[in-house]
Design a protein around this nucleic acid. Structure first.
Length: 462
RNA sequence: GCCCCUAUCGUCUAUCGGUUAGGACGGAAGAUUCUCAUUCUUCAAAGCGGGGUUCGAUUCCCCGUGGGGGCGCCA
């Protein structure tokens, strides 16, 4: 097969939609799978909404997700420029071709594409007016996912607005020709438009590329496809919330595609190796944030310690968790994060989950409901006293030594570890959930652990 | 209104005519664990309806129905 060239052609709207990300991903995967070229082209013909900021949203999101482009902005290439707003001369040239061959004409100040065939008039109910139609033969769309699709294009359509700017259908086709695109992989919402595009390719005397219309992502609740307003629709939201891009990419790759067996969690190299267009589903997929969250947790648990701590550090910094000048020591922060890693489902849980590690002992906030519950049974004051006594000599650098020490004390009093766990946890963390108790002890250290135990004991009335 | 695509557990999906219809998320129950989470075990849960084709249809075809999309001087 000749060299594959695919493109992702977003328009800068200020958002990066999850559906766009999936379209980009399938293009990128196909390019990487075939050793082809992934082109990034910016469709910014609509001058109303267009700014550097909006462009950066696209670049940032693609980079964050790990989709590097081979040609495009910041990269260059032999078929530039890669922003449609800079390609006017090329569009003008192609417009002249159509004008010269009689396949375009002017009407109402706009330039229209002319279909071939006998003309007739018919009343259009939807637009409630009479329109001119053409007895055309159906365009044949050779789709790698849908198979052969025929669709009749029977009305001339505008290719240049009266303000002189070309429209989407025209620039899309011209650029695909000029950039020698071999495979057009895009959402199914473009399938009906494809007949226009095929007509244009033919009018330019060019064989259309292979098409692959991928299923859409439907909103989780309610009818219709996912739109910007829907919960979970924007890539930047996942970025902000500390999702792992590898997890999001893995999840997205499985929305409308699968490797043909039961594998789900796969490294990107594996996905690239297995991905192919004929394996893409034909029916739309409903978004499922629970499954994404699970995938994210799965990746989080498997993250090497250094990387996990790095992610946590970035998240804390980005969200200003620590007041300026109040950053904890690096090794302490690391210890806290690493004992929390196996317990959480997402990076975003970390600040709340670990907050008691970063307050002064006497400023520890105790959850009142938990306090009432824990102190309401047994003899908490006695247990705290026993703990304080035994922990005075224990080795705080060794979690199993701590555990043995507490178990030994429990045995002497005919009790179990559990009789100490809840009250001790309340004392050091102010809550009833968290990392292993002895992990908390080790990280807090003897001095702070004992102080917190003392503080709680002192607060309990005789 | 016209046109196009589509249809397996609640959700994502496997099955390339013959299976006790499999897996995952979510749900339920249980086990493990110092809490929580993880992990493990078990359970409930599906072929939209009607016609064909065939010895045999979830699988192929047709018609309904449901779902989705398109029909701009938006992209």
């Amino acid at each position: 097969m000749s060299h594959v060239r695919v493109r992702f052609a977003p328009s800068p709207t200020g958002f990066f939609h999850i559906g766009s990300a999936r379209t980009a991903l399938f293009n990128w995967l196909y390019a990487r799978h075939t050793g082809g070229t992934f082109v990034l082209r910016i469709e910014d013909t609509d001058k109303e909404r267009n700014s550097e900021e909006f462009l950066n949203v696209i670049y940032d999101s693609l980079r964050w997700l790990g989709m590097d482009w081979d040609e495009g902005p910041h990269k260059g290439g032999d078929y530039g420029p890669y922003r449609q707003s800079e390609r006017s001369a090329i569009y003008e040239e192609y417009k002249q071709k159509l004008l010269a061959s009689g396949r375009a004409y002017e009407k109402d100040g706009a330039i229209w594409f002319k279909l071939l065939g006998e003309r007739y008039e018919v009343y259009d109910e939807r637009r409630s007016k009479t329109v001119e139609k053409v007895r055309n033969t159906p365009a044949v769309i050779d789709d790698l996912i849908r198979g052969r699709v025929e669709r009749l294009e029977d009305e001339d359509f505008v290719i240049f607005r009266s303000d002189g700017n070309p429209v989407f259908h025209f620039v899309n086709v011209v650029d695909d020709i000029a950039m020698k695109i071999t495979h057009v992989i895009r959402g199914e919402d473009h399938l009906s438009n494809t007949s226009k595009h095929v007509e244009l390719f033919r009018a330019f005397g060019v064989e259309p590329p292979k098409f692959a219309h991928i299923p859409l992502i439907l909103k989780q609740n309610g009818p219709g496809k996912m739109s910007k307003r829907d919960q979970g629709a924007l890539i930047e939201e996942y970025q902000r919330r500390g999702y792992l891009p590898e997890a999001l990419v893995n999840f997205l790759s499985l929305l409308g595609w699968n490797p043909g067996d039961d594998r789900e969690k796969m490294p990107i190299e594996e996905i690239i190796r297995l991905f192919d267009l004929p394996g893409v589903n034909q029916s739309n997929a409903r978004f499922d944030d629970k499954k994404l969250a699970h995938m994210n947790m799965s990746y989080l648990l498997a993250l090497p310690p250094d990387e996990f701590v790095q992610k946590a550090r970035e998240y804390f910094a980005k969200h200003g968790v620590f007041a300026a000048g109040a950053h904890p020591a690096e090794s302490y922060f690391r210890d806290v994060m690493l004992i929390s890693q196996p317990k959480i489902k997402g990076i975003e849980e970390l600040p709340a989950y670990t907050k008691y590690f970063f307050v002064e002992d006497d400023k520890l906030v105790i959850d009142e409901k938990v306090r009432a519950k824990v102190l309401g049974k047994g003899d908490p004051k006695a247990r705290l006293g026993e703990l304080i006594a035994v922990l005075g000599q224990a080795d705080f650098t060794n979690e199993s030594a701590l555990e043995e020490a507490i178990k030994g004390e429990a045995q002497r009093n005919n009790l179990g570890f559990g009789d100490y766990q809840a009250v001790a946890r309340l004392a050091v963390s102010g809550t009833n959930v968290g990392p292993g108790l002895t992990s908390i002890f080790r990280v807090l250290g003897r001095e702070r652990t004992l102080r917190r135990l003392e503080l709680l004991r002192a607060s309990i009335g005789a």
